[in-house]
């Protein structure tokens, strides 16, 4: 019995040793390759797609995710047409023979681990929740692609545009309610919250102690009496999850506040395009104070579609 255990122990030690050695080899290989600027980059995530398209040099980016051409998910759908799409499957990515894969740090962990086991360098990017995160991700993507100067230029333009946004800060910020399918909303530490607050609005999601995304009961949203409703668009195929967004009680709110603002592709990812979303929100906020008749008309037209 004891000898069996000892045997098992030594086998385990052997396996561990082999594991460490191979890990070390992969690491060495990884660092060795990291010195060279990657020439065949594949992005598997709609957000890294856009960062890469913004910064990559001529011919450096090989493929982007299939969502990059979907205007409901990506802020750069036309630019993305130039690249062959991928569906983030390990097999297809491996066959593309990339020297660098970039993707989000959530969702496809199995694929990422598989690719790393196959010896491919994969860099993951966390969700951007703030303007600082956007600058950080741009800098990191720039460094990975060997395009640091380009990244700094993009960041400089971003900062200039951000400073150029004219948010009137007088008085109390109007309350905005973000509402998506299945009653989800964004609270603190989310890109949507950053966009809303940058437009001089107050996001009620944070008042309910929600961090990132969380569910908000319809009753609670109504009782918070928002001045503006910011909602996701209906998906192209129906589901009950979207029915709540057309609930008559929300219509009662938008009858008072005017047409809801729709969350679009620019809200999805931490790229400089979020500033366009902020700008649109500022315009919508300016309309809050003015007579609402024309907006109600467009709202009812949209409903009849």
């Amino acid at each position: 019995m004891v000898s069996r255990l000892r045997q098992f122990g030594s086998l385990l030690a052997l396996f561990l040793a082999v594991g460490f050695v191979s890990a070390a080899i992969v690491t060495v290989a990884g660092t060795a390759r990291a010195d060279a600027v990657p020439q065949r980059v594949v992005s598997m995530n709609v957000c890294t797609d856009q960062l890469a398209m913004l910064l990559a040099g001529e011919g450096q980016l090989h493929s982007v995710s299939f969502l990059a051409t979907d205007p409901s998910a990506s802020a750069m759908p036309i630019r993305a047409e130039a690249f062959p799409p991928n569906r983030a499957r390990a097999e297809e990515i491996y066959l593309m023979k990339p020297d660098l894969v970039v993707t989000g740090s959530f969702g496809n962990r199995d694929t990422v681990q598989m690719l790393r086991r196959l010896g491919i360098r994969v860099e993951t990017f966390p969700l951007a929740n703030s303007f600082d995160d956007i600058r950080m991700n741009l800098r990191r993507m720039g460094a990975l692609l060997g395009r640091e100067a380009r990244a700094e230029r993009v960041i400089a333009v971003f900062d200039r545009d951000l400073a150029g946004l004219r948010v009137d800060g007088d008085g109390v910020a109007p309350k905005a309610a973000l509402y998506y399918a299945n009653k989800y909303t964004s609270g603190h530490h989310s890109m949507a919250d950053t966009i809303v607050e940058a437009a001089g609005l107050h996001n009620i999601g944070g008042d309910f102690g929600i961090r990132g995304m969380g569910q908000l009961p319809l009753e609670a949203l109504i009782m918070a009496a928002p001045d503006m409703l910011i909602r996701s668009r209906d998906y192209r195929a129906p589901a009950l999850a979207f029915e709540v967004l057309d609930h008559p009680s929300l219509r009662k709110v938008t009858d008072e506040t005017g047409e809801p603002v729709f969350v679009g592709a620019r809200w999805n990812c931490g790229t400089p395009a979020v500033l366009v979303a902020v700008e649109r929100l500022i315009e919508a906020k300016l309309r809050l104070g003015s007579p609402r008749a024309p907006y109600r008309e467009t709202a009812s037209l949209r409903r009849r579609d």
Binding site: N182, Y235, R236, A237, P238, A239, L240, A241, F242
Partner: peptide, 9 residues
Amino acid sequence: SPNPFAALE
């Protein structure tokens, strides 16, 4: 259904 929420329902 092509809608990702449908299966949850």
